[in-house]
């Protein structure tokens, strides 16, 4: 199940999108997500679809891999669809017992599902084509102006990057501790909710202990390698806009113009 979540995963391959500056991708994703909520019309969805499909093609990430990510959120999609189909008032299409299905309901449900699918696919394109470290670099530099408001941008980016490195380590550790407690006869599968929650204690305590130990080790390791916060730090690969990034900004502007045009005309 965890392996199925493609949102947040990186897919290593070679493409224009992979090479783009992470800041451009961040702004692009933001713009795209906002555009999805601006559209009310059919034409708007066509514009968004064309944009999304061309991004998918450009990313060189297999479509199958991307769609696997949707499997994980299938439940959310289904609930959204069902709620909208049955709860929207309007012209009745079919009715039986107390349940009515309306034309408006079907329409809203379809739009909501498409919107969610587009939202998830769109943002997963960003994470699929950007390494976690590029992403945090992009955040750090792209949001650097927030420092004026005393937002600790560097620290947040550093925390994100460490968290990303340690997620696989801690997942593996959880698996190991679970197996070790199972070997001592622990049972995580049977019983009611309270019993099951109690059964987690033998996993959570060692996991926390280990996480704190790792945090302590890492802090000492960072200090001994002269880490003293973001002040005066340089970068191995500082972010710099290339031609393609300016070009990408152009494309984003064109998309913005298209959205506005569609919103005004339809």
């Amino acid at each position: 199940m965890i392996r199925d979540i493609t949102l947040g995963q990186y897919y290593p391959t070679e493409s224009v999108l992979h090479r783009l500056d992470p800041r451009v991708k961040l702004w692009g994703t933001l713009l795209y997500v906002m555009s999805l909520f601006l559209f009310q019309s059919f034409a708007g969805y066509i514009v968004a679809s064309v944009f999304l499909v061309s991004l998918i093609i450009m990313s060189h990430v297999p479509v199958k891999f991307m769609l696997r990510g949707l499997k994980a959120v299938f439940v959310i999609l289904a609930v959204t669809a069902v709620l909208n189909v049955f709860m929207t008032p309007g012209r009745v299409l079919v009715s039986f017992w107390k349940i009515k299905i309306t034309i408006e309901g079907l329409r809203t449900a379809a739009f909501m599902v498409i919107r969610l699918v587009f939202l998830i696919t769109g943002s997963s394109i960003m994470t699929l084509t950007t390494t976690p470290s590029d992403l945090t670099d992009g955040l750090e530099k792209g949001l650097g102006w927030l420092k004026i408001f005393r937002v600790p941008v560097h620290e947040i980016a550093m925390m994100m990057s460490i968290a990303l490195t340690f997620i696989p380590v801690l997942l593996e550790e959880t698996d190991r501790i679970m197996k070790a407690q199972q070997a001592r006869g622990a049972d995580f599968e049977s019983g009611n909710i309270i019993r099951r929650a109690k059964a987690l204690v033998p996993i959570l305590v060692p996991l926390f202990v280990s996480a704190f130990r790792r945090a302590n080790d890492l802090a000492i390791a960072m200090e001994s390698r002269c880490y003293r916060g973001g002040e005066g730090r340089t970068k191995l690969n500082p972010l710099k806009y290339a031609m393609r990034d300016y070009a990408a900004h152009g494309v984003l502007l064109a998309y913005l113009a298209a959205i506005i045009a569609v919103a005004v005309i339809f």
Partner: peptide, 12 residues
């Protein structure tokens, strides 16, 4: 240090 996992800071 002893534990190689606990002193890796970069993702690559």
């Amino acid at each position: 240090f002893q534990n190689p996992e606990n002193q890796m800071i970069g993702t690559i």
